[in-house]
Computed example of a mutant assay.
Amino acid sequence: MSLPIGKQETLVSLAEQAGLDRQQTVDMLASKRFGDAVREDQLAAVRLGVRGVPYFLVDGRHAISGAQPVSAITQALLAARRENKDSQDDVDGSMCSVGIC
């Protein structure tokens, strides 16, 4: 299903479905509160050479561009986990998820 995400009512409806307050969402969309943050994200994307969506950057090093299978995302997450294992010991298992540690 394709939704017109350029329309405010679509965004408000999606926000509500995600559990956000309708009026707060309307107020936020009418404000310029997050404008600077959005422009910073856009500039960062240009610097990274992002040319399409979706685009995921895992741990600042592993890029996943375009629609990819779950296995590609899993591989990027596991690679980042392996690279960070020495600096972030997982003593209590709190970083384990769905049997992946």
Rank of each mutant, 00 (worst) to 15 (best):
M1H: 09
S2M: 09
S2E: 14
L3H: 10
P4L: 01
I5L: 09
G6H: 09
G6V: 01
Q8P: 00
E9S: 13
E9A: 09
T10E: 09
V12G: 03
V12Y: 04
L14D: 07
L14V: 09
L14N: 06
A15R: 06
A18P: 02
G19F: 08
D21S: 12
D21N: 15
R22I: 00
Q23S: 12
T25G: 04
T25V: 05
T25P: 05
T25R: 07
D27C: 00
D27N: 15
D27S: 13
M28Q: 11
M28R: 12
L29H: 06
L29P: 08
K32V: 02
R33T: 13
F34M: 12
F34Y: 13
G35W: 03
G35K: 12
A37S: 13
A37E: 14
V38S: 05
E40H: 07
Q42Y: 09
L43F: 05
A44W: 06
A45K: 03
L48V: 05
G49A: 07
V50I: 15
V50G: 10
R51G: 10
R51F: 07
R51E: 13
V53M: 13
V53C: 10
P54V: 05
F56G: 02
V58F: 07
G60A: 01
R61Q: 15
R61A: 05
H62W: 15
A63K: 15
A63R: 15
A63V: 11
A63F: 06
I64G: 00
S65Y: 00
S65D: 06
A67F: 08
A67H: 04
Q68K: 10
Q68P: 04
S71K: 12
S71W: 03
A72V: 03
I73D: 00
T74P: 00
Q75N: 12
Q75R: 15
L77T: 04
A79Q: 15
E83R: 03
N84D: 08
N84V: 01
K85I: 01
D86G: 07
D89N: 10
D89Q: 13
V91D: 10
D92I: 04
D92Y: 10
D92H: 10
G93R: 08
G93M: 08
C96S: 13
C96A: 14
S97T: 10
S97N: 10
S97A: 12
V98L: 14
V98S: 13
V98Q: 14
G99F: 06
I100F: 12
C101V: 03
